[in-house]
């Protein structure tokens, strides 16, 4: 699914982001994949591209820099794993809206760089508790490179 609110105008580019989400979801056989992107010069992070969503909540979600799985991955520039939500999380369960909205119990997110700075996150999620294999993480990293190349060609028109 694509959220038109924050997407670039170029339809091909939008489809390319969505294609990467769909391919990764099929490749890992996970329940959900999503790309979170920080708005330029703002603290807000949105979820413009997702695959495997249960509802349209993602269209309205705005996460703060440093909050939730996407916010933490962007602020630290490091990957993050949740094995059994909401157990052993930092902060409150309400700080992780994508996990609540999509009823995810486990997730792995990797930072997306734009001009050498973390500006987004690629997330894979399952609706059951599990640990992520090195093979899953390698597949995410391969997609990260493709998504970063797409971001380099158009990050909110920049």
């Amino acid at each position: 699914m694509e959220c038109k609110r924050n997407s670039p105008n170029n339809d091909d580019l939008v489809n390319s982001f969505l294609l990467e989400c769909n391919l990764l979801r099929e490749n890992i056989s996970c329940d959900f994949t999503g790309i979170a992107i920080q708005k330029p010069d703002e603290l807000d992070i949105v979820w413009p591209y997702v695959s495997g969503n249960r509802n349209e909540k993602y269209k309205y979600l705005t996460v703060r820099y440093g909050k939730g799985i996407a916010g933490k991955v962007i602020s630290t520039g490091s990957p993050m794993t949740i094995a059994s939500f909401p157990n052993n999380i930092i902060g409150r369960s309400t700080d992780y809206p994508i996990m609540l909205a999509e009823k995810l119990l486990s997730a792995y997110a990797y930072p997306l760089q734009f001009k050498g700075v973390p500006k987004g996150a690629l997330l894979i999620g399952f609706r059951d508790s599990r640990t992520f294999s090195q093979d899953d993480k390698d597949k995410v990293q391969t997609t990260v490179q493709k998504v970063e190349a797409l971001l380099a060609s158009n990050y909110f028109g920049r």
């Binding site: 705005t62 309400t94 809206p97 909205a101």
Partner: peptide, 8 residues
């Protein structure tokens, strides 16, 4: 609340 949780 809506922008945090996506619930209208």
């Amino acid at each position: 609340f809506t922008s945090t949780f996506g619930v209208i």
